[in-house]
């Protein structure tokens, strides 16, 4: 059984002008110890999917359909104490901006000790010892001194290391990392990604890596799910999705990334931009921008159809027709 199963997840936001569907019929699984990349451009619903898994969707948004199961048990409808036992303990989270994920009024030691003691039966002294170990583990020099410092005394990269320690210190089995390197400088990005990968591998923790950056995916993920307009466009092993993309959107996305090497005259570009949630076209959501569009694309919404080692939601593939 997979560690995490997301089954036909649907997240809705009621607004004055009707209901917006931010995540629409998304299904995937995460195996133990696996790194699943969740990629897409802004508005694709990737962060919302991550937030739904740890129960962090802000009202009036809500899970309107589908199930999320951790170890076979449903976690999508948990409330209060039951939710707290899962969030932090079973599933850890790392967000984009380390400065806003840390409380500026408490030392990093206070924050680590609080998190450790919330989830593990340890005394303050034991928790503090463990907090120092964690800071050393995430590569912070002189951890026994730095533990009593405040977040503003750390550099951006060091702060994100503290956030990683916070996410991992309760020994969760799944980490949701939402754009963990986007706010960092390029030379620090690679360090943080390598650290996250190493620590999760050592502890056999699975990771859902939410990002817009295909480069980060290429260096980290085992499998990739590509999202577009709240829906899954394609899912499969990283090599297949990046090198032989099945969905026209993935193909266009890969082509539009500037690369190092001989300079092309033009980059491949996808015309237009992602539709607003209030304005998603009928049929396949990608049809106005697709180079391979045909009549059916305006009528039928494709289902995920098996293709290679993965699945693709495109009417050009057999089995995608509803």
């Amino acid at each position: 059984m997979a560690l995490l199963e997301v089954d036909r997840l649907r997240v809705e936001f009621p607004t004055r002008n009707g209901t917006l569907t931010a995540v629409d019929d998304v299904s995937f699984t995460v195996e133990e110890g696996e790194v699943l990349g969740l990629v897409g451009e802004s508005g694709a619903g990737k962060s919302m999917t991550g937030a739904a898994i740890i129960g962090l969707i802000e009202p009036p948004g809500h899970i309107a359909g589908g199930e999320i199961r951790l170890d076979g048990g449903r976690i999508d409808a948990l409330r209060g104490e039951a939710l707290r036992k899962v969030r932090g303990k079973q599933i850890g989270a790392i967000f984009q901006d380390p400065l806003t994920s840390l409380n500026p009024l408490f030392t990093v030691g206070d924050q680590l000790v609080e998190t450790i003691r919330t989830h593990l039966p340890l005394s303050v002294a034991e928790a503090r010892r463990r907090a120092v170990d964690w800071l050393a583990e995430v590569g912070i020099p002189a951890p026994d001194k730095r533990i009593d410092q405040y977040p503003h005394q750390f550099s951006g990269g060091m702060r994100q290391r503290v956030v990683i320690a916070l996410a991992l210190c309760a020994e969760p089995r799944l980490i949701i990392a939402d754009e963990p390197t986007t706010a960092l400088d390029v030379s620090v990005q690679a360090q943080i990604i390598a650290l996250l990968k190493k620590l999760c591998r050592e502890r056999n923790a699975a990771v859902i890596l939410v990002t817009h950056d295909m480069g980060v995916i290429a260096e980290t993920a085992d499998r990739v799910a590509v999202m577009y307009a709240g829906r899954l466009a394609e899912i499969g092993p990283v090599k297949q999705v990046l090198e032989k993309p099945n969905h026209p959107y993935t193909a266009g996305l890969m082509g539009s990334i500037p690369r190092i090497g001989p300079r092309p005259e033009r980059l491949i570009q996808i015309a237009g931009s992602m539709p607003r949630l209030s304005d998603i076209p009928a049929g396949c959501a990608f049809n106005p921008r697709c180079t391979r569009v045909f009549a059916d694309c305006h009528v039928h919404r494709p289902r995920l159809a098996a293709s290679g080692d993965g699945a693709v939601a495109c009417l050009h593939y057999e089995g995608a027709r509803p």
């Binding site: 550099s155 990269g157 390029v186 030379s187 690679a190 295909m214 890969m254 190092i260």
Partner: peptide, 26 residues
């Protein structure tokens, strides 16, 4: 050279390389 080395490689040929340590000082 460091900057060039930090460019993520879409061909996945360099997975698992050791990133260069350090940050820009204040």
């Amino acid at each position: 050279r460091l900057l060039l080395d930090t460019i993520p490689d879409l061909t996945m040929a360099r997975r698992g390389r050791e990133p260069v340590a350090g940050e820009v000082p204040n």
